[in-house]
Design a binder for these strands. Sequence first.
DNA 1: ATGACGATTTACT
DNA 2: GTAAATCGTCATA
Length: 215
Amino acid sequence: MKRLGRTFFSCDAAVLAPALLGCTFVRMTDAGERLAGLIVETEAYAGPADQAAHTRNGHRSPRNEVMWGDAGLCYVYFTYGMHHCMNVVCGGVDVPEAVLVRAIEPVDGIEIMRTNRSSTATGSKPRKHPLRDRDLCSGPARLCQALGISRDENGLDMTQSDRLWIEPAPDIGRGAVPPDRIVNTTRVGIDSAGPEWAGKPWRWYDRGSAHVSKR
DNA sequence: ATGACGATTTACT
DNA sequence: GTAAATCGTCATA
């Protein structure tokens, strides 16, 4: 099986983020089941200068240590006391950049994703209406829930791990998602970083996908 | 030691 | 549209 290697990830976050659209994110469960989906929405977090990034002002701690590691590592963090979000580390060693994967379109293991996202699995109230497939992975915490990603996956090297990797888009280089379908706009949930950084057009998504987190 | 807050989601008015 | 849930992390003391 083909997978993206170190070279692909060794670039600026604002370059990697749109390049990941159309690629397939793969997560193998402990039981050997393949959970996979097409990446349809990403955001770039760019190093010490970016006031919306966990590494703003060069901040380095046990929590964000993985962001300082080599490109291709998986950075998972816990937030709001209940959610996990997953990033692809890029840049290179001591260049703390990462791309947040905000949404994927489920392809393989959809039944397991439905189970992982069910109210019984999440502990939330019973759903009034059935969980739609478009709601399975349409958000950074939702996709982690669906794929069973937690801090256990933090630091995994996606260029080598047998549990986590990314497969190239069919027509990599030219872009699996036609350029006219890629929307480039501002990031979500970072207003507190201030207008200068909240205004950066560092979010990309596929206009044609029903699986993005926000339209 | 304490308090404020978060790269979110869900439920409710 | 607003509010609640819920806890690790970080700044302040």
